[in-house]
Each structure stands twice: as structure tokens, then as C-alpha cells.
Design a protein around this nucleic acid. Structure first.
Length: 539
RNA sequence: GCGGCUAUAGUUCAGCGGCAGAACGCCUGACUGUGGCUCAGGAUGUCGUGGGUUCGAUCCCCACUAGCCGCCCCA
């Protein structure tokens, strides 16, 4: 049998790496808390429509990268019962006697027989099921026989009613059964339309969905929410790019009356991100931002861009020629050196912003200047998700290779309405946690976290006493690694040196006297410590 | 999704159409309650998986899987 491995693009996070993950997440929680954000946890999968409408049908994410599946269809037993009853409206005296469920045999109707030639009495046992198994037939047969004790005149029949498309072979086979069980295929629509579900490729749409669903806007207050969780995109795995990847994100969203459109919100979010990265100790990040225009500005700009590209695209690289057709904004992103002079001549979004957008962006920049957050304006910065409007930004970092975006985000003033909610402008970001960890790891080689002490029982007889001592110290809040009395002393020292800062020897002498031998690995210094002072000595 | 490179011991990697290798790590002993140094000895393994060529394949060929790099896209 081939060995099972983590599937493509997914991975396991193990110690000591997980220590780093926890540190990053803890720092995010601390920093966000200072800005008065609260945590939201949304489901890992959502209705596919949420992403189609929110992220945009034409985006790469939605059109080719989502993990989407049809949820199992639901069987509509009620519809099937109706179909069965209406097959012959006079068949039953009273429909109120008919009780059905999807999986139980619970229908008994008594009346003079009409279906069969000479029965005195007919008992129908009806089982409505989406599919039918041999087991059902056997069960029903047993019941039929229980209902026909000695009376040979009594004709009792069990009916198994199934949707005609299902179990066709079984149905026809059993139809000829002489055993008082008849399988009745009924045609009709008995399977409720199933639902298309999708593993979330990003989390903003889910947050906005929750905002709408719980009418958070009705509070009249700005909602400030953050999340930490896995996202899923079916892309080719690469460094810093996985099919299950982690994001830490936050959203500021609310009705316009709560100030959700204010440029100070944009600046505050950006300032918070700068603080977060600084507190983590990430050096060398760059904030790049741009205004991609409002819902009114963008179409005008794209039209102008297409117009300009008609002449210029043929002189550009093959990718750009394709992008000029499919997604003209992406041409601005091109990294081919020869194309750069041409790109410089293309229309700039800044020239197509209306007065509001222009003023909004200027105010964001002024606020950043005021609080000393450094940034670069890149008029060519574009984003891959349809919902972004006006302020769009990235924090980039060298040393991430092709995936140099550490985090990205922007304003999404029309998202709520796009998915059927009230007007609720917002701004948010998503941090690529995997990439953040990569840059942190590149910056500092990670030290294994050493335990405060390694307890070495000398001889197996000391094992239980050592466990007791370990319990005592652990309860005092110390990080303790417990050895094994079967180890030779040399091995205890070697193992202890790898795992802990100090070693505590527990042999017969120590146990008798209550004075423990403690040796510090770094200094080589050995001391005798009374048991009651041990915890404070180790701290 | 496209192109390139890679896959051998726990790890990092050599290697060759004919007995599977090094370093580090690991285990044992020298050394019975004091490690790191030293010395002696030992085990490392389906050579990614499946097929093909061959007398013979870890090596050559094909497919698959996974990883890395670039593209695309994004965080």
C-alpha cells in the first residue's frame, strides 16, 4: 500500500514552527485589540453564489481556483407521497391515515382491495425512500407476514415506492415478486435542487455576508472585525503559495452615517498594519498604495485604457497582448523590462478619478504623513478582486520571490450591495500568514524553546517520584521535561542538554535528603537546592 | 493551468548500467551518580510510486506523485 501524504498544496505545521505561528497570531490579537477590533469566525465553506457575486465571476479566483462541489441533494418524501396518492385519488379512503417518512415503514391503510383480484382485505405498507436496498424489501416482507397471521383470506400487500429513475433493475425485478411486496416506481421530481458550496478562497465576502445576515449595520456603529483562518485556492503550489493557506484579516464596515467612508478609516487601518509588522519585528517592508477609483471612475478608465492599448499592445510582450483583451488593468502589472516605457505612456487611473475619489485619496495620504507611516504611491497598483474600490494597497517584502505581497487589501464600497445587502462601505486587508512566517524565519533562525528543567530520575525506582516532582514544578508554572530512570546518567545529560536549560538529578540520596542536585547546562555550575526552593531556583 | 529543475539513510547531499556511500545525527561500549571532548564498534535505506528497455536498472526511457523556481494569479 502506498503511504499516505498530505495532499498537494497542503502541509503540516509542526513544532517548533508552530511556536512562531502562535506568536504571530498572539501579536495580531494584541495589536488589533488596541484598535478595538473584535474577532469573527465565519464558516470555512459558503454558498458558491457569495463568491461569484462578491469576488466577481470573471476573476481568476472564482473562474478557476475555487474548490466547489454540489452538496448532496435532499429527498423530498412529501412530494413523493403526494405523487403516490394522486396516482389514484380514490385509492385511499382517507389520506389522513397516510403517514410517511423518508426512512421508516409506518404506513398502514386498510380498505377493501381494488388492486388485486380477490383479496378480502388489503394492507398497504408503504415505504418512501430515495433509493431502495434489498434490506428494505426484506424488512417490509417481514412486516407483511406479521400482519397476515392465520387468515388465509386476508390479502396483505406491502408497497415500496421509489422514484422511477432510481434502482430501475431492482424495481422491475421486485415488481414480479409473489411475496406480497410490490415495488412501485413513481416518476416526478422528488429531489430538491442541491446547493453549490465552495471552500472560502478569501474571507471578506464571508464577513460581509455575516454583517448583512445579522443586520450589524442596524447598530449604527462601525463594525471592526478581524479573523484568523485557513483559505483555499486551487493554484499550483509554490514557495509562499499553498492550496490551503492562512490569512489574518480585518474589516471595518458600516453604514455611511457611521463614518465608514471616511479616509481616516483607511489611514487608521494602514497605521495599524505598520504597527503590527513593526511589533513582530519585520523589517524592510514597503507599503504601496493607489486609488483604483470608484464604481463610476473605473469603467471610464478601463475604456480609455482599452482604447490606448489598441495601438500599443501589439508592440508589447505576448502576455500583455493577451491581457489587453482579457484584463487590461493587468497590463499595468507587467514586469517585462521592455514594456515599461510603453506602460509609462498609458493613461493613468489618477487622471480618471472624480473629485470625491481624488480628495479621498489625498486625505488618506495626508493622514499617513501626519502619523509618520511611510508609503509609496504606485499609480499602477491594481488588485485581482472585483470588489476593490478607491484605496488599494499592498505591503511587500523582498525575499519572497515571485510572491512578494505580504498582505493586501483595500476599500470595497459596493461589496455589500453586490451580495444583496444595504449600503455598507468598508475597508479591509488580508495578511498572508504563510508568507509572513517565511519572512520571519528568513530574518531570524528560530531557536528551539528550551524547557526550564529536565528531571533525571536515577534508576527506574525513582520514576514515580520524578513524575511527582515534575507535577509539582509544572503546577508552579515551569516548563518541565521528564526523563526516564532507565537512562544511564550520560544519556540523561545528553538528552537534557538538548531539551532544557538545567538538569535536576533525582536519585536515592536526593529523595532521602530532600536536597536536589541542579546543574546549569550553560555555565556548568552545579548546586544543591532544597526541594521547597527548587521552583524559584529554576525560574 | 503552462514551462524548467529536482526526488538516494533521521538530516544535508555525493554516486554509478553489475555488493548502497560520506558528513552530521542516532545507538552501544571504554565510563556502575556527572554530559559536551576523545577513542572503538554498530544500525541506518522498498535509492518517491508504477511501468518499459536490458542478462541485469538507484542509474537509461515513459507515466504518475510530490517539492522547488519561473509564468499566470494572488495573500
Amino acid at each position: 500500500m502506498s503511504t499516505l501524504k498530505a495532499v498537494r498544496g497542503t502541509r503540516d505545521l509542526l513544532p517548533p514552527e508552530t511556536d512562531l505561528w502562535n506568536r504571530v497570531e498572539a501579536t495580531a490579537r494584541q495589536v488589533f485589540a488596541r484598535y478595538n477590533f473584535g474577532e469573527i469566525r465565519t464558516p470555512v465553506f459558503e454558498d458558491t453564489q457569495l463568491f461569484a457575486r462578491g469576488v466577481g465571476e470573471e476573476t481568476d479566483i472564482v473562474s478557476k481556483e475555487m474548490y466547489t462541489w454540489e452538496d448532496r441533494e435532499r429527498f423530498d418524501a412529501r412530494a413523493m407521497r403526494e405523487a403516490w396518492l394522486s396516482r389514484d385519488p380514490n385509492f385511499f379512503n382517507s389520506r389522513t391515515n397516510v403517514r410517511t417518512t423518508e426512512s421508516t415503514i409506518d404506513l398502514i391503510v386498510q380498505r377493501p382491495g381494488v388492486l388485486f383480484e380477490k383479496p378480502v382485505k388489503v394492507v398497504e405498507l408503504v415505504n418512501f425512500r430515495p433509493t431502495i436496498r434489498q434490506q428494505d424489501i426484506d424488512d417490509l416482507r417481514k412486516i407483511v407476514h406479521r400482519y397476515s397471521p392465520e387468515d388465509p383470506a386476508a390479502q396483505k400487500i406491502g408497497f415500496l415506492v421509489v422514484p422511477s429513475q432510481r434502482n430501475a433493475d431492482l424495481a422491475t425485478k421486485e415488481h414480479t415478486s409473489k411475496d406480497k411486496v410490490v415495488v412501485v416506481p413513481i416518476s416526478g421530481k422528488f429531489f430538491q435542487s442541491s446547493q453549490s458550496l465552495t471552500l472560502r478562497p478569501e474571507n471578506t465576502a464571508g464577513v460581509v455576508r455575516a454583517y448583512i445576515e445579522y443586520k450589524l449595520g442596524e447598530s449604527g456603529l462601525l463594525q471592526k472585525l478581524f479573523y484568523i483562518g485557513p483559505q483555499f485556492r486551487r493554484e499550483r503550489p509554490q514557495k509562499g503559495r499553498y492550496r490551503q493557506f492562512w490569512q489574518i484579516g480585518a474589516e471595518v464596515i458600516g453604514p455611511p452615517s457611521a463614518g465608514s467612508e471616511s479616509p481616516v478609516r483607511d489611514a487608521e487601518v494602514l497605521e495599524m498594519l505598520a504597527t503590527f509588522l513593526d511589533e513582530l519585528g519585520i523589517t524592510g517592508w514597503t507599503l504601496v498604495l493607489n486609488s483604483v477609483g470608484s464604481a463610476n471612475d473605473r469603467p471610464r478608465y478601463i475604456a480609455a485604457l482599452r482604447e490606448a492599448l489598441k495601438d500599443k499592445a501589439p508592440k508589447m510582450c505576448a502576455d500583455c497582448q493577451r491581457r489587453a483583451e482579457t484584463n487590461p488593468l493587468r497590463v499595468l502589472d507587467c514586469k517585462v523590462p521592455e514594456d515599461q516605457p510603453i506602460i509609462e505612456t498609458l493613461p493613468r487611473i489618477a487622471d480618471y478619478l472624480d473629485e470625491d475619489s481624488r480628495a479621498h485619496f489625498a486625505t488618506v495620504l495626508a493622514a499617513l504623513d501626519a502619523c509618520g507611516v511611510k508609503y509609496e504611491v504606485n499609480p499602477r497598483l491594481v488588485r485581482g478582486l472585483d470588489y476593490y474600490t478607491r484605496t488599494a494597497f499592498e505591503f511587500t517584502h523582498g525575499g519572497l520571490g515571485a510572491q512578494n505581497a505580504l498582505l493586501g487589501g483595500g476599500r470595497y464600497d459596493g461589496l455589500s450591495e453586490a451580495i444583496g445587502g444595504p449600503k455598507a462601505p468598508g475597508i479591509g486587508f488580508a495578511i498572508g500568514l504563510d508568507r509572513l512566517i517565511l519572512t520571519l524565519q528568513a530574518q531570524e533562525q528560530q531557536a528551539v524553546t528550551l524547557a526550564d528543567a529536565y528531571i533525571a530520575p536515577l534508576g527506574e525506582a525513582q520514576n514515580s517520584a520524578a513524575l511527582e516532582l515534575a507535577r509539582e514544578l509544572r503546577r508552579a508554572g515551569l516548563r518541565i521535561e521528564l526523563g526516564d530512570g532507565s537512562f544511564r546518567l550520560k544519556k540523561s545529560f545528553e538528552t537534557g542538554d538538548k531539551l532544557a536549560r538545567k538538569i535536576v538529578l533525582l536519585g536515592e540520596d536526593e529523595l532521602r535528603s530532600g536536597i536536589l542536585t541542579v546543574k546549569d547546562f550553560a555555565s556548568g555550575e552545579q548546586t544543591k537546592v532544597p526541594r521547597e526552593e527548587l521552583a524559584s531556583h529554576l525560574r
